[in-house]
């Protein structure tokens, strides 16, 4: 008993660390892909790390108050905790104690933290950014949650570990994507929107609202958000892999799947200009929701 608790604690410590490192490479891949698409060279290998170290190493830091600080702590901490709920090859963490729905809601903690921190900055650009981000969340979470329903219903469980185990037991034919292709497409759409990349990045709109939530974030505050971004990319892709691509049999296939999943939206992203908020809602509430409902209809049949 004590042993297993210790083991769990060890996993809970390791999992965010792995997530951070993988996430750094995901950020790199994203920027590299964007650069390639734009016929640029792109950043060097450790660029994401340089950015983060530099930001944390800033000499003067500006804070607008305690909640500003706590917001960043919550933003990072929430994702650190969320990673413990995402099973990876060899490590389950506390995935069995939380499950899919818990994960979905735990992922709102960092957003809430960020929103609080931005609010304390007293900058309208930030508040507008948050209002847009929350609106976008309302938009893409609806297809996302339908997808989660479909998957959970299909596998008869909200436990990610058993969902992954079921998929792996049957091989590729048992993967979510083969059994629920429509849901998988809808899920990918929702995943893309949730990343906040083009064309869904109205909430950071640099030229318009000065990168929205990040407007007053400098130094370690921005650094925290960079860390959060690594986790965000990691979480989104691993969740998708766990739901539809049979999770990770081993680290190699796992990472390949993760990066591949992430590459799709990134490749699409840089081809589009951004949507306005209302267009974003219209788009996301129309196609992915329709697809997801159709998928659920198939699943429940």
């Amino acid at each position: 008993m004590a042993n297993s608790i210790l083991l769990t604690i060890l996993e809970v410590i390791l999992m965010p660390l792995v997530a951070f490192i993988v996430g750094l490479f995901m950020v790199l891949m994203m920027r590299k892909l964007a650069a390639k698409l734009q016929r640029r060279v792109g950043p060097p290998l450790f660029q994401p790390l340089y950015d983060i170290v530099k930001l944390y190493g800033k000499q003067t830091q500006i804070s607008h108050g305690l909640i500003h600080d706590i917001g960043i702590i919550m933003a990072v901490g929430g994702y650190v905790a969320a990673e413990a709920l995402l099973p990876v090859p060899g490590m389950d963490g506390i995935a069995a104690k939380g499950g899919l729905v818990t994960l979905a809601y735990l992922m709102m903690v960092p957003s809430l933290g960020l929103a609080l921190g931005v609010g304390q900055c007293a900058n309208p650009n930030g508040s507008i950014g948050i209002s847009r981000a929350l609106t976008a969340m309302l938009a893409y979470d609806i297809p996302f949650i339908i997808v989660i329903f479909g998957v959970a219903y299909h596998f008869g469980s909200t436990n990610l570990v058993s969902i992954i185990a079921t998929q792996q037991a049957e091989g590729i034919a048992g993967w979510g994507i083969s059994e629920m292709p429509i849901l998988a497409i809808a899920g990918l759409f929702a995943l893309h929107a949730s990343l906040g990349k083009q064309p869904f990045e109205i909430y950071i709109a640099p030229a318009e609202i000065a990168t929205g939530p990040m407007v007053e974030m400098g130094g370690k505050f921005l650094g925290g958000l960079f860390v959060m971004q690594t986790f965000q990319l990691y979480t989104a892709s691993v969740l998708y892999v766990s739901l539809f691509l049979g999770g990770g049999e081993n680290w190699v296939t796992f990472l390949i799947k993760c990066f591949a999943v992430l590459a799709i939206p990134v490749l699409i992203a840089y081809l589009f200009p951004r949507y306005r908020t209302e267009d974003l809602i219209r788009l996301v509430w129309k196609w992915p929701v329709m697809l997801a409902l159709l998928g659920v209809a198939f699943v429940m049949n």
Partner: peptide, 16 residues
């Protein structure tokens, strides 16, 4: 997780 976040946060120079 919050503790980790705080650790990271306060590892940076103190904020004014």
């Amino acid at each position: 997780g919050f503790a980790v976040g705080a650790l990271l946060f306060y590892s940076g120079n103190k904020a004014k």
